[in-house]
Write a protein that binds this DNA or RNA. Sequence first.
DNA 1: AACCTGACTTCGG
DNA 2: TCCGAAGCCAGGT
Length: 106
Amino acid sequence: MDLNSRSIVERITFYVKHIPVGKVATYGQIADMAGNPRASRVVVRVLNTVSKTEKLPWHRVINSKGMISLKRGHGYEMQKHLLESEGVIFNDNDRINLKQFQWRGS
DNA sequence: AACCTGACTTCGG
DNA sequence: TCCGAAGCCAGGT
């Protein structure tokens, strides 16, 4: 498919779908791969809208600090559980070691 | 067209 | 290393 002719939203969707199991990507990282390193907030919108009609591995997207952005009682627990079930480890500060789990796209 | 919003990021103190 | 402020994108109102 011709990614370059697609919209930023479509490209973001494409990359999110390609995050491998057991790995994570940051909002900024996906935005960057999609062509606009400053469109991290668009990634948020995509996860909220697109994931309603398509199955996306939304839980594999975390913030630049290696932490889950969802709040407790509002998805945080669910996302953490999904990631742990894939082998991702959280340290004592509830953070994920990006050096170890961040997806290194090509 | 102005204004608001969101699972963000970067930078300065 | 930890905030707070400011910057940023795109869609919805």
